[in-house]
């Protein structure tokens, strides 16, 4: 029986070589291209998605290891693009080329799910694995702080 996994709430069968990294399963098999390829070696964070809510690097995660697990990609982070981070990203005009930003947002969402009030240092620690070559780091920091404040208000 083919293994399955859940992507953004939908069950999908793993009908490829099980050692294929999740990144390419998403991009080439499902044509789900929001998740980006940057380095292929876990060094840049462009491919960050959630495994049961926690950030992982899709480029180094074999899809076969994810049977029955739940994956969330940028396309599934919120129903209407209204996750507090997505809103804060827009309010702070974060993206330049935007290529790294899906990974940045997914990583930040994972951070906020574990630490609702991160300090500047917490943010720097958690986000260090995500490269932005356009240099949007200052706005990323501010957007994460804003989203955390927003979440605190909601709580």
């Amino acid at each position: 029986m083919t293994k399955t996994l859940i992507i953004n709430g939908e069950t999908v069968s793993i009908d490829v070589d099980e050692s294929m990294p999740l990144l390419w399963f998403l991009r080439d098999r499902l044509e789900f291209t929001g998740t980006k390829f940057g380095c292929g070696s876990g060094l840049c964070g462009a491919c960050t998605v959630h495994l049961n809510g926690q950030a992982i690097r899709a480029c180094v995660t074999p899809v076969g290891s994810l049977a029955d697990q739940s994956i969330t990609t940028i396309e599934g982070l919120s129903d209407n693009g209204d996750h507090p981070l997505q809103k804060a990203w827009l309010d702070n005009r974060v993206p330049q080329c935007g290529y790294c930003q899906a990974g940045q947002i997914m990583n930040a969402a994972s951070l906020l799910s574990q630490n609702t009030q991160p300090s500047d240092q917490d943010i720097e620690m958690a986000m260090q694995g995500n490269i932005c070559r356009c240099g949007t780091y200052q706005r990323i920091k501010k957007a994460i702080r804003d989203a955390a404040d927003e979440l605190a208000k909601e709580a």
């Binding site: 044509e31 998740t35 396309e75 982070l77």
Partner: peptide, 23 residues
Amino acid sequence: KDLKRHDQDDVVVGKRTYGVDTK
């Protein structure tokens, strides 16, 4: 003015398509 870029809404939901995304 500090007009918002036309493409940021697409970026934050993963819909902005790049050269690498052509199918």
